[in-house]
Every structure is written in structure tokens, then in C-alpha cells.
């Protein structure tokens, strides 16, 4: 009899502890506890070791696959190389001009929304539960990675740093974004003086597109336009490519339009990423400075 009671007692206590733990981890928190940091780093270190041979094999297999297309790609690349030279020249001239103008205005790098430092990182694991759109990277606060920094690949933005331990960090991918972490964006319109501004408000699981909500109704929005971060959200720098518009709809109340944006970067296949550290102080940093 006593034994039965004891078992029930243990069961109830563990239930209470688990509900407490879930409640604790569900609330909004920016810093992890020391235990979590420790586990993240230990597991991350071993994951990095395990990942070496596996990623070697997969890249090798991909390389073999790519060799077949090399000749055709080479022809195409040769033709675009000519255009590149022209562009490079223009680019050099323009950056020289910009530097001169900066000097005359006496502004430093951190006064521009575009400027950022980049931190190279490798992906070491992905969340095993696919409802969490998270990946783990092998750089942490020791390398300068802080929560809320943007993460990109060569093709475009893939997400933001969710939390960082000393040697590893977790990245929330774009397809896990919801209304609590919106991105302020600009839509690039050709032949127009001002860009269309709006917010990425979430991700549509069915069509696998990001949802872009405009600040005001705009007729110029159309398919094929590119979406960039505007830097006005206070966290990301300006000019990170996010995606291409594939569909425009009116919203429920016909007040604004909602556009479906296809992410430029491939969110499924990630090996090497770049963490973006904005030079201009972010909103959080300014608040902290104000408090101290």
C-alpha cells in the first residue's frame, strides 16, 4: 500500500517539475542559463567532430554530380566575365567617390546602415524536431556572435541568431519567423525614386513563401521584384537580400497588399553561413547604454 502511494507521489512531483520547466522555458528570455550554455557547447563540440567526415562525404558526392555540368557552366561564365570587368570598374569608381564624399561629410562607417562586419561560421547540426526551424553554428559569444544578428549565405538572408553560448549559437531560420520577429524590408522598384517599404510578417507553410505586408497600398508592386532588408527595424543592416516576389494579393480588408516572397537562399541545404554584425548600434544596445 505504502509502495503504491510513494510511486504516485513521485509521479505527481515530476509532473509538477515538468510543467514548471515548460513554463520557465516558454517565457520570453534573451539569456540562457549557465547549464544550457554548458550543454550547448559540449554537445556542439562533439557535433563538430562527428560532422567532419559526414560533411566531407556529402560534399564529395555533390562535387561528382557537379562535374558533369562543368563544361556548360564554363561557357556561360566566360561570357558573363566580360560584363563583370565593366561592372568592377564602375564599382571601383563609385566606391572611391563614396569614400571621398564620406570624408567631406566627416562621417564614420558606423553612421551608415549598410555597413557591417561579417563572422564566418559552419553549420554543425539541425534541430531534430522539424517543428523547430533551428540550426546550430560553431561560433558563439567568444567570436562576437550575439542574439538577434542577421545570418546570411552567399545567396541571401537565412535567419537570425536566436541565442548564443560561448562557443556555439542557435539560428532561427526564416521559415520559423512569426509576428514577434518581423523584418523591416524595402522592395526594390526599377525607375522609381523611393522604394516600397513593408514588413515580413511570417511564413506560409503550405506555399513555402514568406509573407510581406506593405505599409500602404501601392500599385507598383508586382511579380519579379526583389526584397531587401531596410535596416529600419533596428537590428539588421540595410541591403541584405531576402527574396523575390512571386505573387501579390489584397489582404483581408483590402487596405494593403500581401505579397508572397520566395526566399533567395536555400533554407534546406546549409553548410557555411555568415553572421552579420551591424556597425551602427542596434536598438537593444542603445537601450542598454541609456540604462547604464
Amino acid at each position: 500500500m505504502f509502495y503504491k502511494k510513494k510511486r504516485l507521489f513521485i509521479f505527481l512531483i515530476s509532473l509538477i517539475i515538468i510543467v514548471g520547466l515548460i513554463g520557465f522555458s516558454l517565457r520570453e528570455r534573451s539569456e540562457l542559463t549557465i547549464i544550457e550554455d554548458f550543454i550547448h557547447d559540449t554537445v556542439g563540440w562533439v557535433q563538430e567532430v562527428v560532422n567532419q567526415p559526414i560533411s566531407f562525404t556529402t560534399t564529395f558526392a555533390n562535387n561528382v554530380k557537379e562535374i558533369r555540368n562543368v563544361y556548360r557552366e564554363n561557357q556561360k561564365l566566360k561570357s558573363s566575365l566580360e560584363e563583370m570587368r565593366q561592372l568592377e570598374y564602375e564599382n571601383q569608381e563609385l566606391s572611391k567617390e563614396i569614400n571621398e564624399l564620406k570624408e567631406t561629410l566627416e562621417k564614420t562607417d558606423s553612421d551608415f546602415l549598410q555597413s557591417f562586419n561579417s563572422i564566418q561560421a559552419s553549420v554543425i547540426a539541425k534541430s531534430k524536431d522539424q517543428w523547430f526551424k533551428q540550426i546550430t553554428i560553431n561560433k558563439g559569444t567568444q567570436n562576437g556572435v550575439e542574439p538577434n544578428m542577421a545570418v546570411i549565405t552567399g545567396k541571401g538572408m537565412i535567419g537570425k541568431v536566436q541565442n548564443s553560448s560561448p562557443f556555439t549559437s542557435t539560428v532561427l531560420l526564416l521559415n520559423g519567423f512569426d509576428r514577434t520577429n518581423r523584418i523591416s524590408v524595402n522592395v526594390d522598384v526599377e525607375d522609381a525614386k523611393t522604394d516600397i517599404s513593408g514588413f515580413i510578417v511570417g511564413y506560409d507553410e503550405e506555399s513555402e513563401h514568406l509573407l510581406l505586408e506593405l505599409n500602404e497600398k501601392n500599385q507598383e508592386l508586382s511579380k519579379g521584384q526583389y526584397v531587401f532588408s531596410s535596416g529600419l527595424g533596428g537590428v539588421f543592416p540595410k541591403g541584405l537580400e531576402i527574396g523575390e516576389i512571386v505573387e501579390v494579393q489584397a489582404d483581408r480588408y483590402e487596405l494593403t497588399s500581401i505579397a508572397h516572397v520566395k526566399p533567395s537562399a536555400d533554407l534546406e541545404q546549409l553548410n557555411h553561413v555568415i553572421v552579420i554584425d551591424r556597425n551602427m548600434p542596434t536598438v537593444d544596445e542603445q537601450v542598454e547604454e541609456g540604462e547604464s
Binding site: V43, V46, V50, I54, A125, S127, L270
Partner: peptide
């Protein structure tokens, strides 16, 4: 157990294109 936990994360990193797109496979 520890090694198996790590393998769970590493395997989900490899994109398994053999299967349908919206299948979620959890190890």
C-alpha cells in the same frame, strides 16, 4: 546514448531528397 543524440542532429542536416518534400522525418 550521447552519440546517438548527436547523430540525430547530424542526420537531419543531410537533405534527404529521396522522399517527398513535405514529409517530416524525426529520428
Amino acid at each position: 546514448c550521447f552519440i546517438l543524440v548527436i547523430l540525430e542532429g547530424t542526420l537531419s542536416l543531410i537533405n534527404v531528397s529521396l522522399f517527398a518534400d513535405d514529409w517530416m522525418i524525426v529520428s
